[in-house]
Structures are given as C-alpha cells and as structure tokens.
Nucleic acid binder design. Structure first.
Lengths: 190, 190
DNA sequence: CGATTTTTTGAATCATATCAACGTACGTGG
DNA sequence: CCACGTACGTTGATATGATTCAAAAAATCG
C-alpha cells in the first residue's frame, strides 16, 4: 500500500486526509503464481497496481498460441483498459507469473474516488501518458531492431528480469519463437 | 475549432463559459503539406489537435531510413509526449502529409488551463487511455499478422485512407519495405 | 523419484529484405 | 502549358532472418 502512495506522490501530492480517503477505496490482496485477475471473455472489473510481483497480459492468437502483449512489474498499473472502460468482454488473460501483492481499484468506486480527490484524475492522466509513450517506444524497437537485437536490448534495460520468467514467455513478449531465443543465447556463449 | 469542442464534449461536458476560457488558450493554425511541427533534436513545445488533414510522426533509424511510428488524422491529438513532458530534445519528426488545420495547446499554458478547467485533466486522461489501448492493439496486430495481412486489415479499417498517402509511407507505417507492398498489391489484382 | 514442462539442436522451409534496373507520374520553371 | 528532372512505384533475382517440426536433453514440480 505504501508503495502505491509513494508512486502517486511522484506525480501529485496528497494531504494526510486524502491519503486516508484513497486507502478507503483501495483493497490490497495476495495473488498466487498462475492465478488469473482476468480471463478472455470476462468483463474487466478493476485496475490493478502491482505492489510486488510480476504479471503477464496475453491473448490466444488464431493458431492457439499464447501471445504476450506485455508484462507488469512492481509499481505499474495493469488492466485491460478497453474492457474496463466500455464494460465489454476482454480478449485478454491477465495472470500472475510469480506470487504477487496488488492494490485493487474497482471500477465501481473509481468515479467516486475521482470526485472526492480530483487530483487522482491528473495522476492517471500522467500514468496513461507515460504508458502510451512506453508503448510507442516499444513499437519503435520492434520496427528498428532484429529479434536478436531486441533480446540484447531487453536484457540491458531490465537486468535480472530474464531470470524471473520462463524463456518462452520472454520470446513471446519479444515477438519470436522460443526456439529462436534458444539459438540466440547459444550464439552469445561463444 | 468547433471540431475540438465536439471532441471534448464526447468525454466531458463544458459550460458556455468554460468553452470560452478554453478557446482563449487555444490557437488555430493552417499547416502546409510537408511543413514540420517538430524536428528531431528540438524540444516539443505543444500538443496539437488535428482539425483537418494528416500528419506523420517518424524518426530516422540507424540506416538513415525514415520509420513512421504513426499517423494522425482528423480529431486526433498528436505530439511527442515524452519530449513535451520532460522538455528534452525529441527523437522524432512531426510533419504534415497533406495541407492541414490544427488547434495548438502550448505547453506553456497547459497547466493554467488545467487549473481553470479541471475537467480537462479528465478529458486528457481519457484521451491518453484511448491512445494507449490503440497502441497496444497495434502491437497485437504486428505480432499476430503477417505483413500482407496487416496491409489488408489496414485497408479494411481505414477505407480510402490509402489514397491519401504515398505507398512508401504506408509500407513504413506497417513495418515493411515499399517493394514488398508493391508485390502484395500486384498479387491482389489477380 | 517419475511426470510434466521447458529448453536445446538441426534440417527444411517461408516470409520478407535487398539490390538493381526500369517505368511512371508529377510539380516546377521556363 | 509543355518539358524536364526528380520522386515514386514495379519487377525479378538473390540473400537472410526467423519459423516450423521433430526429437532429445535438461529443469522443475508434486
């Protein structure tokens, strides 16, 4: 919970009172490895802040293969914002890759929170702005670099993260096959 | 200008008075084909709403090739939000693909506008939320479909748009070479 | 420990890139 | 309004990065 307050205060400042109001709208929760916060076909009901742990957002492509759109780690919000906003069935799965702790902001109380603390609207504006630019950067990397280069770049950008997840998930996130990643790593050894 | 007010009112409602305040913060402007709103190395100074026309946001990759990250058309905001937020030099070019009319929200007055009309914070939260989900969808298409499929999908999604831009720009946006696009189109004829 | 999941390896194959040459269109100055 | 030059589009031959499939090896889990 403190991690969330710290994160918010990086963008806007909250009074003691506001912090307490905020806490009354947020529920913290443990999530076991492989548990789902959302499954394809369900309507997404909340926005999740990852206090600790790692999640993956993925979908099934037409060949029945799991395709990971992105990971969420400590101090990131994660959700299917399209399903959340429009209250339509999601195309995605949102699953814990490792045991995690999250703060849950339910859709049903979100508007009330914004009314009581309008600053939160600003906070989320900045969060989405950042998420959007990160997503654009990602497209840039996909178009600019080869698979091999993307792997090395990812390793440099998130040192140690590779050890937290199975290789086939990283391959999926980077947009190539597990076999290809295996060959890239074999090459590196030499 | 009216197009912008209409767009805003799709997300939040503004009183007559607020509309007038807003208009005092916005400058409308004509932009000629091939003119730049932003060049690589410059600090981005404003957020632009496209009233009419088409822009492209692109960068130079390491081989000196223009890589288009995305297009902006009527009723979209476009800018380099990373440069705008952090006031750092941009890596991107933002250029009019056809003659355009835009509404300019300068960075220097943006905060004052948000103070006077806090609803605008909410408006932009929703705009960025939408932009973020669109960007995620784009990554999904890139990973799921082949180049050929992406071309056909784009054509279906934005009928008529293909005619507005040179083919090499579309190829760049879709992430392959102009030669490849030419071959895909030749195949379709049969 | 055995059972399942994940990773590795190699060979064949496929989608797309690259390069070079040629054809077409288009806008700019005379 | 025509002619020219430059920008854009096409085509074919060859090259390459990445996939597919199958099978074996290694790691992980109950």
């Amino acid at each position: 919970m403190q991690a969330l307050l710290n994160h918010i205060q990086k963008f806007v400042s909250l009074s003691e009172e506001e912090q307490e109001i905020l806490q009354s709208y947020i529920v913290c929760q443990e999530v076991n490895k492989k548990d789902y916060l959302l499954r394809q076909g369900q309507v997404c009901m909340a926005n999740y802040f990852i206090l600790k742990g790692c999640f993956r957002l993925y979908y099934m492509n037409d060949n029945g293969i799991e395709q990971i759109l992105h990971f969420g780690i400590d101090n990131w919000w994660i959700s299917d914002y399209d399903s959340l906003e429009k209250e339509t069935p999601s195309e995605f799965f949102l699953q814990a890759v490792e045991h995690a702790r999250i703060a849950v902001l339910k859709k049903s109380v979100q508007e009330e929170l914004f009314t009581k603390i309008p600053k939160m609207e600003r906070y989320f504006r900045l969060v989405f702005q950042k998420a959007y630019t990160a997503s654009q950067q990602r497209i840039k990397y996909i178009y600019t670099f080869s698979g091999e280069e993307r792997y090395h770049h990812f390793n440099k950008s998130f040192p140690g993260f590779v050890q937290r997840i199975p290789q086939y998930m990283l391959a999926s996130y980077l947009g190539f096959t597990p076999e290809f990643l295996s060959k890239v790593r074999a090459k590196k050894e030499k």
